[in-house]
Write a protein that binds this DNA or RNA. Structure first.
Lengths: 235, 235
DNA sequence: CTAACTTGTAGTCAAAATGACTATAACTTA
DNA sequence: TAAGTTATAGTCATTTTGACTACAAGTTAG
């Protein structure tokens, strides 16, 4: 344990999307404190690794997941957030497509929970989750991070449902598809859904290269929720 | 020193705006390492204080500044970022109006530098600065943080110049004022500039209460840079 | 095998926002 | 009094939006 930093820890918010629901991956804690309780996957940092490396290692060890979108949220450092001793935690958040990264047997202690039905979480994990949700809601509008939560190939309806689940409001289907397709960031594939009980929808792929190129020209990704009519009572 | 966390530090990016330029406050380091070099104001965290409290204390002690907009950027934790020993730093960024918070004699070792003319910075402070600039550029478009950099009462031209300085591109004056005033977040004051060598402009104040109310209704603050024409060569 | 149902996808249309300008007002200084 | 600055109101064509309609393409129920 001498090779660990004892004043810092890492906790990961792992968001996934499946069946129209946004989900969070929790693990059942193996050790005290809060042993046996569902909590954010977390761990400590080795002296020999950067914090980003540590976050990837911890995630891999606890859940078997790797090569996923992983970014730092922020540090949480209330004095008494971790009862045993003073530890500041670095919160990371990951976005993954449930199908792209199925849970292996390796992660027997891990389970997906719909974000609307989370169990009580220990320490300040509830606050971390709330902050992560807020950040996700903000980011999905201004950055094309939503695609990380979908399979490589997806339909426009899946994309729309993802936005609806995260933003928590309904979107108009024709308008949503018009907006997204006109952005020229989705590549229509010569493929369609299979085994669906209705007309098969075309599959699309996100064009990351094109996005990067457009960004250099000053392009800004924006998916605004419908602005409700502004009541202009006085003036 | 036993009451300090020795594996963590705090470094602050302090942005200010004056005379059409975005500036960063640096201090000349009193102690080794990098003694005498210009660097981000920083320090260590007491066991008895939260990280947010620590950031405010450090800022006050080093610069005399208080009661300002201060938010966390993120943690920087490369293994060798701080040569003496392994320390992860929490970067914060502050936005202040140069006039609202003049430097007191208290902060003799502090000086404002235009962000375009920064001296070489020690450790990973350069990377922290770059990340902070990117975050500021992103945030000023989606959140009304720009007002933190202006005096309480400001003119529309000052606001526009602030956006131009941060985004690094020119904006059309009539269109900018139309966009901002139609948002209904600026309260026109019955006051005008004084002692200017031309027609005095009206002063405005940011209506934070109204902003908070609109946000609850789903309003989203957006100041998009002009989208250059999309070349649609093929298709 | 036709009808009912589901989802996909193309359009329409009025309203609002945007980008590019023009024009004029209000001051100061030469 | 004229020239120079900045403020501020408006115009206008174009684009984007929000709210819908219509129809296509499959599946399943009767």
């Amino acid at each position: 344990m001498a090779d660990m930093l004892d004043q810092l820890s890492i906790d990961c918010l792992i968001f996934g999307f499946g069946e129209g629901q946004l989900r969070l991956l929790l693990i059942s804690r193996e050790d005290a404190p809060a042993q046996g309780q569902w909590a954010l996957p977390g761990g400590f940092i080795l002296r020999s690794e950067s914090i980003d490396d540590a976050s990837r290692r911890i995630l891999r060890q606890l859940t078997g997941l790797q090569d996923l979108y992983l970014a730092q949220l922020r540090a949480f450092g209330a004095v008494d957030r971790y009862p045993p001793r003073r530890v500041v935690t670095l919160a990371y958040y990951a976005l993954i497509s449930a199908d792209r990264h199925p849970l292996t047997s390796h992660s027997a202690k891990a389970r997906w929970f719909p974000v609307t039905e989370l169990p009580a979480l220990p320490f300040d994990h509830e606050a971390i989750f709330q902050e992560g949700m807020a950040t996700l809601r903000r980011n999905i509008r201004h950055q094309p991070v939503g695609f990380e939560l979908l399979p490589e190939k997806f339909t426009l309806l899946q994309l729309q449902q993802l936005y609806e689940a995260i933003l928590g409001l309904p979107l108009d289907k024709p308008n949503f598809r018009r907006k997204l397709t006109r952005m020229d960031l989705l590549i229509p594939l010569p493929e369609y859904q299979r085994e669906v009980a209705h007309r098969a929808a075309r599959l699309y792929r996100f064009d990351k290269d094109r996005y990067d190129r457009l960004c250099e020209e000053g392009f800004v990704f924006e998916v605004a929720p419908p602005r409700r009519e502004r009541k202009t009572p006085d003036r």
